[in-house]
Write a protein that binds this DNA or RNA. Sequence first.
DNA 1: CTGAAAGCGCTAACAG
DNA 2: CTGTTAGCGCTTTCAG
Lengths: 333, 333
Amino acid sequence: MEANRVQRLPTLLDVARESQVCPKTVSRVINGENNVSQTTATRVQEAIASLGFHLNDNARSLRPGQRSRMVGLVIGDLGNPFYARLASGVEEVARAHGNLLLMSSSEEDANRERDVVIALCRRRVDGMMIVPTGDDHAYLGTSVGPGTPLVFIDRPVSESKGDVVVIENRLGACRGVNSLIERGHRRIAMIADNPLMYTAIERTAGYRDALTDAGIRANEDLIRVGAHDPDRAEEMALELLDRPDPPTAFFAGNNRICIGVLRAVTRSASNCEILGFDSVELIGAPVVRLSLLSYDAAELGRQAAQLLFDRLNGGASVGSRRVEIEPRLMQYA
Amino acid sequence: MEANRVQRLPTLLDVARESQVCPKTVSRVINGENNVSQTTATRVQEAIASLGFHLNDNARSLRPGQRSRMVGLVIGDLGNPFYARLASGVEEVARAHGNLLLMSSSEEDANRERDVVIALCRRRVDGMMIVPTGDDHAYLGTSVGPGTPLVFIDRPVSESKGDVVVIENRLGACRGVNSLIERGHRRIAMIADNPLMYTAIERTAGYRDALTDAGIRANEDLIRVGAHDPDRAEEMALELLDRPDPPTAFFAGNNRICIGVLRAVTRSASNCEILGFDSVELIGAPVVRLSLLSYDAAELGRQAAQLLFDRLNGGASVGSRRVEIEPRLMQYA
DNA sequence: CTGAAAGCGCTAACAG
DNA sequence: CTGTTAGCGCTTTCAG
């Protein structure tokens, strides 16, 4: 008569039958409501244990007003250490709040991002953290429910309301380049990523700020954009080093670019100084003069998750908040 | 009269009302069943768009026989590059199968692992991949439903049935140590992690195999266990180097240990050769003679997810399967 | 302190 | 091709 019990997981009703009480009483015991007598509570607990019962959280969160206790995270790609550390920070805070993390990668593809966001909506996550890709985020307005808080990480999104956690790119870059200038550099090259990327734009602006502050006119020939990967960055750096009056220092716009520039400077046996912008700490001393605008990607994640849970637990009344994380300038050689 | 529509997300019933059809027809349209006329389908689509409706997957998966299209992953800690790469491989395959990844870290704590596994069960994940911690996994038998496939990664679990993906630790270690022997080494030290860890046990066994095969008697003084972190590994290596007859080569049992040994050998200006066991590829040439038993942690993740989806999609009839990933021996200097 | 009944959003089974 | 009915597992009224 119970032939299919093997496949079907025990339900709250099964527990109720087993312990001779009504379903609601079982529910009360599970949720620690105190209006249950000690004797019945014990009996229910025993039934739960003997049946190996676990509440079905999907069913529970069907009721209006119930949270799913899942938060969503959309990043570029877990294989990239930057995103991995970011996710690690998010996960740490989510865990501390008793939430599970529902995650997927956008692969830096705007369409994939949209699909993933919708999949998360369908799962009714309580909130979402997104490292946005592409420039059109209007879909968020129509796709994401108004009660679902959003936090954007590393890049702000203008079309949609949500909190934002970013690096202090412009000021950081300015300080770093300024320190190069203070050490006597005048011909400072900059190699940046995709010119449409928020971080690239801001860091380039900071570079220009520093030059302007020092009364140096920016030499457009020394600014190269579109370095997607280390190889391209290396080429660009070598090209600049081959010119009649090469730069005496490089500002590398991100970690991949920094690797390419390091290779170029090493290979050409130039004694150029390098300034990088990076989320990781190097191991050991490099062979060339190197300083780094260094920040912790995990901290980006932690702050983002913190903003999210603030909103979930506290008041949703406050307007959009923005956290900026200041990179530290570290001298390596 | 619709004052609370702002907060409540539109439901399938709302769409049905809006488009003047019955709920089931909306369901048909959404799920791409073909027995709907073009005209009604269009009308429904429009209603869906205008209401900004998204299916509630939690409600959907309540029906028996429906999967949740979520798979669970329990790892040690996303901040560790090994686990991050592993997770990246899992996520890649999960995504290809249209599944979301529900993830949490155990922090290598057996109690936390148990809590996380139960949380995933409550979410009714279709299957789970676990990097197991601790030695008692009996709880899996009673906590996880019989229909939920399990895959264990990096370390097998005897108490519970499930597929397994591991590195070919023993044979790999044997080959690596053998290559040291072929290059003339006789006094080869081994520094290993926690002596209860599966990988440490296997790799140490492989080390002994190689010595035995070559007719060398293992010198127990040259075997050190319990190196949890680079610092401890460095200490142990320095201690060995300070002895009257120091080793001529080190076998470092994992990546953290390898870092410590590298530091020790570099600091003591010894010309010891090092063999490491590692999941990452080094950048640039190291200063000491180094070879690596190298493997891709992402591949562990991919294989694990593949085994899981095989079971979810195909037959569950086959017995436990075991995949072993062979490390490649790479010579660096 | 405990129970009964209704319903959350969706889909399977069965009509029409 | 479309609609009706019932029920997935849980919790929230509201009664006892």
